[in-house]
C-alpha cells in the first residue's frame, strides 16, 4: 500500500500505474458515479432536448417546403389563368373580327344587290322611255308621211285624192320600214 504514495516507487514496482490493482476499486467506484451522472444528464435532458430541436427543424423544413410547394402551385395556377385569359381574349378578338367581316360582307352584298336592282330598274325605265319615244316618233313619222303623201298626191293628181287610200298606203309602208 505504501507504494501508491510514492509515484516513482509505484511506477517502479509495477512498471505501469494502470496495473496497480489497488487503485481499481477507487477508479471503478468513481467511474460508476460519473457514468450514472452523465447517463442521467444525457438521457433526461440532453437527448430529449436535442431530439426536440432536430424534430422542430425537420418540421420547420418540411413546412417551409410545403409552403414553397403551395406558392409554386399558386404561381402555376396564376400562370395557367393568365394563359387561359390570353387565349380567350385572342379567341374573342378572332370572333369579333370574323363577325365584323361577315357583317361587312353582308352589308356589301346588300348594297351591291340594291345597286344592281336600282340599275336594272333604271335601265328598264330608260328602255321603256326609249320605246315610248320611238313609238311616238314612229307615230309622228306616219302622220308626217301621210300629210306629205296626201299633199303630194293632191298636188299632182287632185282628182285621185282619196285620203283614206293614202293613209292606208302610208301606214303599210311605215309598218314595213319599222319592221
Amino acid at each position: 500500500m505504501a507504494s501508491e504514495m510514492n509515484p516513482a516507487e509505484a511506477a517502479g514496482s509495477t512498471g505501469m500505474p494502470q496495473l496497480d490493482f489497488s487503485t481499481y476499486a477507487n477508479q471503478i467506484f468513481w467511474l460508476v458515479v460519473a457514468l450514472v451522472v452523465l447517463y442521467f444528464v444525457i438521457s433526461r435532458v440532453a437527448i430529449p432536448r436535442i431530439a426536440a430541436v432536430l424534430d422542430e427543424r425537420r418540421n420547420a423544413i418540411a413546412s417551409e417546403l410545403a409552403r414553397a410547394e403551395e406558392l409554386k402551385r399558386k404561381a402555376e395556377e396564376a400562370e395557367a389563368a393568365y394563359e387561359k385569359a390570353l387565349a380567350e381574349a385572342r379567341a374573342e378578338a378572332h370572333r369579333i373580327i370574323a363577325e365584323t367581316k361577315a357583317a361587312l360582307d353582308e352589308e356589301l352584298k346588300e348594297a351591291q344587290a340594291k345597286a344592281e336592282e336600282e340599275i336594272a330598274r333604271m335601265s328598264a325605265e330608260a328602255e321603256e322611255r326609249i320605246a315610248s319615244m320611238r313609238e311616238s316618233a314612229l307615230a309622228h313619222v306616219a302622220e308626217v308621211a301621210r300629210d306629205v303623201a296626201g299633199t303630194i298626191v293632191g298636188a299632182i293628181m287632185p282628182h285621185l285624192l282619196d285620203e283614206k287610200e293614202v293613209s292606208r298606203a302610208v301606214e303599210k309602208r311605215v309598218k314595213e320600214v319599222s319592221r
Binding site: M1, E4, M5, S22, T23, A25, N26, Q27, F29, W30, L31, V33, A34, V37
Partner: peptide, 15 residues
C-alpha cells in the same frame, strides 16, 4: 492510502 471512496485525480478528471 487510496480507499475506494478517496477523491483522486482520476475522480477529478472523470467529473
Amino acid at each position: 492510502e487510496i480507499h475506494w471512496y478517496t477523491p483522486t485525480n482520476v475522480t477529478l478528471w472523470l467529473f
